[in-house]
Amino acid sequence: MDNRRIITAAIGSLLMLGLVSGNAMADDKKMDMEKCFGVAKAGKNDCSSNKSAHSCAGQSTKNNDPMDFVAVPKGTCEKIAGGTLKSM
């Protein structure tokens, strides 16, 4: 099959799909809307002062915080094999 025929066939099958699935798709869509609604992520813009306890009062802003140098990733990266090996 040359490329032209491949394209004609592929678009042709899209058109077929469009003809048969019109109404069925509309119903599915409604159900998905209900089901997927709960995944809302909280917007980050708000008008209150930040509550986080890590007050930065008096803290140096230079990159000389000793904690920065001892920091080692300690999370789910442990479950990813080869993650540390590859760089060596």
Binding site: A71, V72, P73, K74, G75, T76, C77, I80
Partner: peptide
């Protein structure tokens, strides 16, 4: 954040 942990 999960990969490196909260402190890092």
């Amino acid at each position: 954040e999960q990969l490196v942990g909260k402190d890092f």
